[in-house]
Design a binder for these strands. Structure first.
Length: 725
DNA sequence: TAGTCTGGGCTTTTT
DNA sequence: GCCCAGACTA
């Protein structure tokens, strides 16, 4: 198969570059994934590289899967490619695997578990309590952020600064927290990278072994690597690497997570012989959209300019629209989508609504609900963050790794089985006294081996604990020779979990459905061990959870939109304070990133882009007037259609958005009622209209009812019947 | 021991 | 305006 078919000259240059260090600066929609997959195929088919010696790192599991699929498609025609498969996955997944393999060299066992944010929070909270710090002064979230930042920058505990009181507090918690993790045989996300880094740094033999094993490295989304990832990469690459990195500094949007687009410059310094290739031709968007994107991003200082071009033609103008407030904005977005789909201009699944903060999705969801239209949402309440899912996973983790205290504390009394705070306190106390994991105490109780334990708990508590430990021990035994699904079913049955979670309400039902969904996922893992199952679900990202099945609009944050594309994109909340977010106002670097965020959103668009803003907005507290995003002022008016940038005179004139094909037309709302009219209401009976006034999108009518006195009603809701005027 | 209440805090993005 | 943690009560 001719690998260079359908590639442009820059892409071919990248794909066929000789082994060595290569930096591909890829504009949005420039065929980056295509270059990566072709490069992998090229290595295997044309350069005689053994697939197993290739490592390609992506940002999400979804991207890894996509790559794997496309590489395999490229290779099916090749008969020599039978020698294993290239290693494709996220940094975190790759590290998780290495740690499992090399656990002997680390203060962990290979059965370690990965703690998510909520698990980390509870450890930090515990640490704060133990250290007798004031939890109000030392917010767990903030401390966790600081610890995470330190780990991402490879700062060891001993090197953590103590120059300020705040730092000292972080350091104290960091120490406790780290001890707690190891005592639980657990790691957090950042540890995955940090431990592998230390492993390779401190063990020459392992370092050279892995260098030999992973000779060909490829990195996607290179601009979003952090210090830990970059350093790890350098350790793996060695002196004379075959290191192929692809990225776009203009799409770097994870600074707050330690990502540093300057790694791109660092790469050029560290590998001066590296070949740099620019991909500028865009295969996704119309020229108008590219021009809007360029107008926005060109204001960022100190960047290498890229000339984005397409041969798709200019397309249709970008539409700007101002709504009164966020509810109207959401209604407008929904209406827009239904209009486009009804007119056959787009499928519902072609449309995406993007926003800066998750909180903005609420108004949208409500609008979709009101309209009775389905939607898909990325992130927000993550599937794996849901209570019922975390409950079940806690049980599975306990079976896999009995010393996991966080999971134990969760599972012990969920569903409630009479093990209260007092009992738990006694249990933890005795485990501390004997310097064993709480699990050991429970097991000893259940096996009735230690008479000294009998006196600790009152009979009722003891019975509850023993019964819990009995089941637990049986599950552990069972895990050896029965499948995952059978194990899950047994847990659900023995804990009577359904009765606990499904209380007959809609919410309870959906919780039970979520459990069934997890069971389905487990079914796919039936042949694999519990360890891999737990690892995979720990490393699933929000973006991975987006299903393609449903033909419905996608709601997602601008962050989650990276790497995706849609024919129709609606970006909401183009107000100063939202995008750019007000927390970025006083930091030029942060403001540059806000700009990149908008750039990422805009460049997801294939055909139609709508930029929505509001006149008023409620961010925290009451609704206030809100300025248009300053970024909008950078877009040349000739690219735009719709309202000019100045606000409409919302406070004086009221508008009713009309459900018509022409969304730019707004018909002023006329009052339907007038004072003196006799009207009938379904519930309140008959009455006389006292007064009526237009509130921005509805008519507010005051009626004096015969039976119950004066009521103020929204005309659209009240459905008043006019008897005579 | 479990459920309810309330007051205070907070509101960016998440592998 | 919402959510959570801890206090309070049944």
């Amino acid at each position: 198969m001719d690998l260079s078919a359908n590639l442009n000259s820059s892409q071919i240059e990248a794909v066929t570059a000789p082994l060595g260090s290569v930096l591909v600066l890829a504009g949005p929609g420039s065929g980056k994934t295509r270059v990566l997959t072709h490069r992998v195929a090229q290595l295997i088919t044309a350069m005689g590289v053994v697939p197993r010696s290739i490592v390609a790192v992506t940002f999400t599991n979804k991207a890894a899967k996509e790559m794997s699929k496309r590489v395999q498609e490229l290779l099916t025609h090749d008969t020599n490619a039978g020698d294993g498969l290239p290693n494709l996955g996220t940094f975190h997944a790759l590290c998780a695997r290495i740690i499992r393999q090399e656990a002997d060299h680390l203060p962990l066992t290979r059965d370690y578990v990965i703690y998510d944010d909520a698990d980390q929070q509870s450890l930090v909270r515990e640490a704060i309590k133990d250290l007798r710090l004031d939890p109000k002064q030392t917010r767990p979230g903030r401390i966790l952020n600081a610890i995470s930042k330190a780990k991402n920058e490879l700062i060891e505990l001993e090197d953590y600064p103590t120059d300020t009181y705040a730092n000292e507090v972080v350091r104290l918690v960091y120490e406790r927290y780290q001890q707690a993790l190891l005592a639980n045989n657990a790691l957090d996300f950042d540890d995955l990278l940090f431990w592998v880094y230390r492993l390779l740094r401190d063990h020459d033999d392992l370092q050279s072994a892995y260098r030999r094993r992973f000779q060909h490295l490829l990195v996607d989304e290179f601009q979003d690597t952090n210090t830990a990832q970059y350093s790890l990469l350098r350790l793996l690459a060695g002196e004379n690497p075959d290191l192929f990195v692809v990225g776009d500094p203009d799409q770097s949007i994870y600074r707050w997570r330690g990502a540093d687009y300057r790694n791109v410059h660092r790469f050029q310094e560290d590998y001066p012989q590296a070949r740099t290739i620019l991909l500028e031709q865009n295969y996704r968007s119309t020229q108008t959209i590219l021009d809007v994107a360029t107008a926005v991003i060109d204001r960022n200082p100190g960047r290498q300019r890229k000339l984005l071009f397409t041969d798709r033609g200019s397309g249709i103008p970008v539409v700007l629209h101002e709504s009164y407030n966020e509810n109207d904005e959401a209604d407008f977005a929904v209406e827009l989508i239904s209009t486009l789909t009804f007119a056959g201009e787009a499928d519902p699944g072609d449309c995406a609504v993007m926003y800066r903060t998750n909180a903005q999705s609420r108004a949208l969801e409500e609008a979709f609900l009101r309209a009775g239209l389905p939607y898909r949402i990325v992130g927000a309440q993550r599937f794996y963050g849901r209570r019922e899912i975390k409950d079940l996973i806690a049980y599975l983790r306990l079976i896999h790794n009995p010393v996991d205290r966080v999971s134990l504390l969760r599972a012990l009394n969920t569903p409630p089985r009479g093990i209260g705070a007092k009992t738990i306190e006694l249990l933890l106390e005795s485990s501390q006294k004997r310097d064993v994991a709480p699990a050991e105490i429970l097991f000893a109780l259940a096996r009735d081996k230690d008479p000294a334990l009998m006196d600790i708990f009152n009979p009722r508590a003891r019975r509850a604990l023993v019964s819990f430990a009995d089941s637990w021990l049986r599950w552990i035994e069972m895990k050896e020779n029965s499948g995952l699904v059978a194990l899950i079913d047994l847990i659900l049955e023995e804990t009577n979990y359904r009765a606990y979670i499904d209380d007959g309400t809609e919410e309870g039902e959906s919780r039970w459905e979520n459990i069934q969904e997890l069971r389905r996922v487990a079914y796919e893992f039936e042949d694999i061990d519990l360890a891999s199952f737990l690892e995979s679900i720990a490393l699933i990202s929000d973006q991975d959870t987006l299903s393609e099945e449903q033909n419905a609009p996608t709601l997602l944050t601008l962050h989650a939109a990276k790497g995706l594309e849609f024919p129709v994109v609606i970006i909401i909340g183009l107000n100063d304070g939202v995008l750019p977010h007000q927390r970025s106002f006083d930091d030029p670097e942060a403001m540059a990133e806000e700009r990149r965020l908008l750039y990422v959103g805009v460049t997801r668009t294939k055909d139609r882009l709508y930029l929505l803003r509001t006149f008023r907005r409620r961010i925290a507290g009451p609704s206030t007037l809100s300025e248009p995003s300053r970024f909008l002022h950078n877009i040349p008016p000739k690219l735009l259609d719709g309202d000019l940038l100045g606000s409409q005179n919302w406070e004086q004139t009221s508008y009713k958005q009309k459900t018509t094909w022409d969304l730019s037309s707004k018909i002023p709302l006329e009052p339907q009622y007038e004072p003196g009219m006799r009207v009938r209401h379904k519930v309140f009976g008959e009455g006389i209209v006292l007064s009526t006034k237009i509130d921005h999108d509805d008519e507010e009518v005051s009626v004096e009812f015969e039976e119950i006195g004066t009521k103020h009603l929204d005309a659209s809701m009240a459905q008043l019947e006019v008897l005579d005027g």
